[in-house]
Design a protein around this nucleic acid. Structure first.
Lengths: 192, 192, 192, 192
DNA sequence: ACTAGCGGGACGACCCGTTTGT
DNA sequence: ACAAACGGGTCGTCCCGCTAGT
């Protein structure tokens, strides 16, 4: 009844994107063929190619979708101090990493499969990382951190390491290490 | 110079591994076919399958080779204090990451392409990471660090983040962030 | 101007035929898909299948349309002696062959793509050729040629060679050869 | 036992070319898929791509093969006067055109399916036609014809028309027209 | 009656990892 | 050690039916 987003053709395209998101994240991009995506989406092959020029474009949209989802999740965080927000972000990452089905960071994984830095997929990855770093920097600055720029770099590095370790090591152990590391990066709380 | 038939077909196998290492690391595992590997190695297809049961085994050996190479590199480090050795390890990582041809960590990239945790490739990855963490822990303990276990976890996390960021961001910026982070992890030098 | 619903769905069908004519002639029949035709015609897929049972029928109509166009062009020739009319027909062919966009004879090209002599497309081709030969024969007879039947066969052969050569060789050279050939076929003008 | 041509790998490649020649000529280029060719050749798919970079290259080789065959056939003609040789060439064309399986000129048919004049296939067609015209010109010159150049153009045009008409009309009728036309092009025999 | 889009199944060219003959 | 064979899989396009929505 309600036409929240585009009035027409919502389901088919969305189903393709859903299936792509699920399969690409869970198994990787190159091993998942178009045929499997359209099969899981319950979509004809031609309708897929009506919505996406090719597989690469679908991959790019898969990443932008992921990025949009993360931005929305951050925007939906309960209001809190910048420092608490930062801690919440990393804590939530740990929660995700402990849940079943976690497979690391979609962007890092995609970068592993697309070596060419000029490839559109890599461009989408860069854009997401610029947003991430900007988010950290703003929160640090709002927290009154003396060197938000460089500390944002450090947080990005911690985030990447966290995303990787949560996938490859014991999530509980990684959680402890990450939160401790975060504390050392942020320094003692500003006694305001 | 050499006899008609060398005692063991060493060079053929080694050439295959060399080509695999180069191609797998530079372009990824799934996109590189065995035909290209044997072509670059200058080896017949049958000789390849004489030395390796299949492609997956080659991938596993590619990772163990990488691991052996890193262990040898660490063993060849000039004698120094544990703390200096740790710093050297991370500094060398930054050097590699700034060099052209850097494509991130071979193990992290491989994990992105092999989701199944029970796969032999993932087992090889786990083994390398266990060695890495053990190395950190021993060096920390030798340095007299009070909590070598947990600090080793943190170092592993920093290492992973470093390997990823060096590939995706500006190496110089990442280097500064990583070394600063390392300093905060190791704490003030033990005034011995 | 026109009523709400024109008595017959003329425009849609005509647009499809126009697009088909343009694309089929310029690029060939098999390489041009139905989707491209309906896209260029600005017509829905269903509308296409409402007017044509299938692609093959469209091809047949494309040829009958071509044939009708040529018949109309001949009928519209300025009044002249039969011999002048014949010369005009071949001269106009040379003009077309020198123009950009010339791609040979639509019927010869279609025959190259439809080998089965019983195929409706081939039937349409045969019909056009029968008309052509009849036209030549009548003009020759009207000119008082002693052997109109066999000379018409020769003219048809020259026509086909002309249509092919204009596409594959230099039009200017071909024109000279064709007109010279035509003169030899027609023989000296009847000194009436 | 005997290694007449290349010592190795003769059969596979030759079988592919044989099948391609048969199918392409009989049915057209675009309608015949690679799969059918390799099936009729009894060859593995990869073997095909080991010998030919792609289908287009096979098409080009199909035409060069055809051209080579025609050149050999002309070279194998019994010694005769130039004029007799010319007549023999056109007579043999008529014989071929009357035989079952005749499908017109392979080059004209191929040109109908490859509109782009810069395409390698068109280049091969041009080359064959240059040879053809050169052959006519030399024979005419050897016969003492006063204008071999322009007459060669006319012969090429007649040849093309003949090849087309033999496919589309009654071969017997076409034969008579073609030989009569040839006589008019060559003029009265030089009473030497 | 025309548009827009989806579903379906076959086929297009091309490449995969692997095994076999020679 | 080479080429060929094998079976299946890759992405992408084919022609055609059908169902809504104005």
């Amino acid at each position: 009844v309600s036409a929240a987003t585009p009035p027409a053709s919502r389901p088919a395209r969305a189903r393709v994107l859903d299936a792509a998101l699920r399969l690409f994240y869970a198994e990787g991009v190159h091993v998942v063929g178009v045929d499997r995506i359209i099969a899981e989406a319950g979509v004809a092959k031609q309708t897929f190619y009506n919505h996406f020029p090719g597989k690469d474009d679908l991959v790019r949209e898969y990443l932008t979708e992921q990025s949009a989802w993360q931005r929305a999740a951050v925007a939906a965080l309960p209001p809190a101090s910048p420092r608490e927000t930062l801690t919440a972000i990393f804590t939530i990452m740990c929660d995700f990493g402990a849940a079943s089905g976690y497979r690391g960071c979609a962007f890092i994984n995609a970068a592993a499969e697309f070596p060419d830095p000029a490839h559109p997929v890599r461009v989408a990855i860069d854009e997401h990382r610029r947003w991430l770093r900007g988010l950290y920097r703003e929160l640090l600055a709002a927290d009154g951190h003396p060197d938000a720029e460089r500390t944002a770099d450090m947080l990005l590095l911690v985030r990447d390491g966290l995303a990787v370790c949560l996938d490859l090591d014991h999530p509980a152990t990684v959680r402890a290490a990450a939160l401790e590391l975060l504390a050392r990066v942020l320094g003692p709380a500003s006694t305001q």
